[in-house]
């Protein structure tokens, strides 16, 4: 109904409403603007977050909600003794610790490579970016075939170089590294593109001036390129790190968390405990802990970046 009244008002340039009415109307409009988003955020983000915290102190079982009891810190105590949980925590940490630096460096190296004026460079940019266009589920299915020890491409190719055969996903010591390799392969192109945008923002004259001063390529990289993309570097590190802590699709599709829980992650446990074992209480405790970890990472990184950029 609003637009109609507006139109009539436009025909009449002199507002007939008093300032007070107008103010109230403004207030109404501004709340009206914000309200849909705020209500949705409350119902589907804040409320579930509060409920997660609440459930983590109960023994909520998915099929018998009426029997739910308050159990204080029972679920959290159980976390401390749960070897599977500690293992998942370790697996997640391993993934993060390797993927974040390696993927960032690979992406930076790729960006430097394709940031040159060469014939056909666009093709190479697209090539490195291609895996990003293929979504994670699809990539995971594809690589499960590639990693098949007896009927897979990976062993055939490595055989040419005289390596292998490897067991990849069926070996507890190789499964996580196989997932790490694939994840970097899939994601590096995405960050390469962001780096590339940053590199292209660095003015050419800076490099020219350095060349006149006799700087070599390495010195230019350290003194011009890196400082020029520092903000982007920080951004990428945060985004990659937080995304890495959420590792789920790859182990879900490729290994179901195995073999021997070697690819079970925190988020995988949240899913498995909650939906397969229906233990909402315990699952919520893991979820809350996961949230706290993400929170700490973000705070630390923000602090670190602030110190470094000021």
């Amino acid at each position: 109904m609003e637009p109609v009244t507006q139109k009539t008002k436009l025909n009449n340039p002199l507002p007939t409403v008093s300032p007070k009415q107008r103010k109230r109307k403004n207030l109404f409009t501004s709340y009206g603007f914000a309200a849909p988003a705020m209500i949705l955020l409350f119902v589907f983000l804040i409320l579930p977050a509060i409920l997660a915290l609440y459930y983590s102190f109960t023994n909520y079982y998915l099929l018998t909600p009426e029997k739910t009891k308050f159990v204080a810190f029972e679920n959290y105590k159980r976390l401390a003794e749960d070897t599977l949980f500690l293992k998942s925590l370790g697996n997640t940490a391993l993934f993060v610790v390797i993927v974040v630096p390696v993927q960032t460096l690979v992406a930076l190296a790729l960006a430097l490579l394709v940031n040159q004026k060469l014939m056909g460079i666009k093709f190479f940019r697209m090539a490195f970016f291609a895996p990003v266009v293929t979504s994670m589920v699809i990539v995971s299915i594809l690589w499960t075939f590639i990693y098949n020890p007896d009927n897979g491409l990976a062993n055939s190719i490595l055989n040419i170089v005289g390596l292998g055969p490897f067991q990849f996903l069926t070996d507890k010591d190789q499964a996580m590294y196989s997932i790490i390799f694939m994840s970097i392969w899939q994601g590096a192109g995405y960050q390469m593109m962001i780096f590339l945008a940053g590199l292209q923002d660095i003015p050419d004259h800076q490099y020219e001036a350095a060349s006149i001063d006799g700087a070599n390529a390495w010195q230019k990289l350290i003194h011009i390129t890196i400082p020029g993309i520092r903000n982007i570097l920080a951004f990428i590190a945060i985004v990659t790190m937080i995304a890495a802590t959420k590792l789920f699709i790859q182990p879900f599709v490729m290994t179901q968390g195995g073999p021997l829980d070697s690819t079970k992650t925190l988020v995988y446990m949240v899913y498995e405990t909650g939906f397969k074992f229906r233990d909402v209480g315990y699952s919520s405790a893991i979820a809350i802990l996961f949230f706290v970890i993400v929170l700490i990472i973000s705070i630390l990184q923000r602090k670190f970046i602030k110190e470094n950029t000021e």
Partner: peptide, 19 residues
């Protein structure tokens, strides 16, 4: 059963992997 089945399956797999 959901827990028993999942945990037994894991133990069985562990056996196949020589654990």
């Amino acid at each position: 059963y959901p827990v028993l089945s999942a945990k037994f399956a894991e133990a069985f797999q562990a056996a196949t992997l020589g654990q």
